[in-house]
Design a binder for these strands. Structure first.
Lengths: 112, 112
DNA sequence: TTCATATATGATTATATGTAGATATTGTCA
DNA sequence: TGACAATATCTACATATAATCATATATGAA
């Protein structure tokens, strides 16, 4: 059902929509990885990182697997990086746009 | 700077991460459109839709323009639909995955 | 000018999310 | 078995977000 898909899209977007979680995915781009490597990479409290990993897990964006005493995470579907990369294009365009706008304003200021 | 881009990515994702806002973008896929058409399409209170439009505007995902008494909205960068469409692939995969998992469980139940 | 229409904004309340600290769980090794 | 390491979970608090209602603003028409 259409509405159901839209709801799910919203859930995945919410799960992605946090700098810390985006950094976790950045780390996992290289391949599966132990939490003990993720924590220093993204920074912050262990419990907080674990919390954010749980959010990504619940959204099925990542999966975890116990290896001895460690827990390894991996991305469920690599296509998530397609989304993140396209997003980067939007962000860059927006940044460019605002800087050219800024430049135009400054030019006007100079004209006075 | 890298961190700044990640922060902005998070902002755009947050702005997208709501069913009502996704439906607004669905409507705008056809082309620029008046708020008076968006409201019945997405459903809900006028003020609520207006709030959500403001969120999309602040994220620069859409732009508005006054035409007489009406306000028309359009998508700033069509590439946002690339993101939404890729998202759909993830969602569909996830739905398929959960239904096959469900089927497998039911099969096991039957075996008993 | 006054009125009606379209839309935005502000205030309030309920709910969700993020963070940190404390504690629980699980696996390993001596 | 007991101690330790890695990770998850729980709790409490602060902050952000969503929905609704009331109100403000802008435009065109009478």
């Amino acid at each position: 059902m259409k509405q159901e898909i839209i709801r799910k899209k919203g859930e995945i977007l919410s799960a992605l929509a946090h700098p810390l979680r985006l950094r976790i995915l950045d780390k996992l781009r290289e391949g599966p990885c132990c939490v003990c490597k993720i924590i220093p990479y993204v920074g912050g409290e262990q419990s907080n990182v674990s919390h954010h990993l749980a959010i990504l897990r619940r959204a099925h964006i990542v999966q975890s697997e116990k290896r001895g005493i460690e827990v390894w995470y991996r991305v469920t579907d690599q296509r998530v990086y397609g989304i993140i990369d396209q997003l980067e294009n939007l962000v860059l365009r927006d940044l460019r746009e605002s800087t050219t706008l800024l430049a135009a304003i400054e030019e006007k200021e100079d004209e006075r």
